[in-house]
């Protein structure tokens, strides 16, 4: 474990807590894409298949349970909670996200580190996580009103990925033959997707104006 990875995990944890806090306290999911949350739930489901078979550490297990629990409860809140579901704007959340999953699955079948079910599922989760934010970014462009919590949520998600890239650089230089192109390429692509959002987030923060994404 290194400081970059710990910072990344804590930022990731903060992002899901911010989202849960928003949905649980103000009972609203306005501006939140259910499709992105469903994709994240699938990412954790397919990535943590070895949750009970491959023990890494207490920290690892607890964090996996938190991410699984939080992502599924967010999906439940938006789909099922009698108050929250009313604030879900499905007409704006139109990205065909299941359409995104097939290329990730096919790619995982052809490009992976070991052709076993677990490894293919894990690689699928890496590719899926890279593009899971797309429905949310598309929805933000559409609704254009980004409330603070949603903006912070996306900012934290992007920061978590940026910390992970620093973690990979650190591990590359400190551990013998630590090379994982698949994770690195997918991770860089994922972080770049946030790049555009980061730019406008910082502009709004610097000029102290409300965050607006260009149409």
């Amino acid at each position: 474990m290194n400081i970059f990875r710990l910072a990344g995990d804590m930022t990731h944890l903060a992002s899901v807590l911010v989202l849960l806090l928003k949905i649980h306290t103000i009972k609203s999911c306005a501006g939140i894409s259910l499709k992105t949350q469903e994709l994240f739930a699938i990412v954790f489901l397919t990535r943590y298949l070895d949750l009970f078979t491959n023990f890494i550490s207490i920290y690892n297990t607890i964090m996996k349970l938190i991410f699984l629990g939080s992502s599924f409860s967010i999906v439940w809140y938006i789909r099922r909670h009698r108050v929250v579901r009313r604030s879900y704007d499905k007409d704006q959340d139109t990205f065909r996200h299941f359409f995104l999953m097939w290329p990730c699955l096919i790619l995982a079948i052809f490009i992976n580190e070991k052709f076993t079910l677990k490894e293919v599922m894990w690689t699928f989760s890496i590719y899926l996580e890279a593009i899971a934010i797309l429905p949310q970014l598309v929805m933000l462009q559409r609704t254009r009103n980004i409330d603070n919590l949603t903006g912070q949520y996306i900012f934290l998600l992007g920061a978590y990925r940026a910390f992970y890239i620093l973690n990979w650089i650190y591990r590359y230089f400190t551990e013998e033959h630590y090379v994982h192109w698949i994770t690195w390429v997918a991770g860089v692509i994922q972080t770049l997707l946030y790049g555009d959002f980061f730019y406008y987030y910082f502009q709004s923060w610097k000029n102290n104006v409300k965050l607006e994404l260009p149409a």
Partner: peptide
């Protein structure tokens, strides 16, 4: 490198 060493990441 064994793929497992990456699996220690979340």
């Amino acid at each position: 490198s064994t793929p497992s060493d990456l699996k220690d990441e979340l």
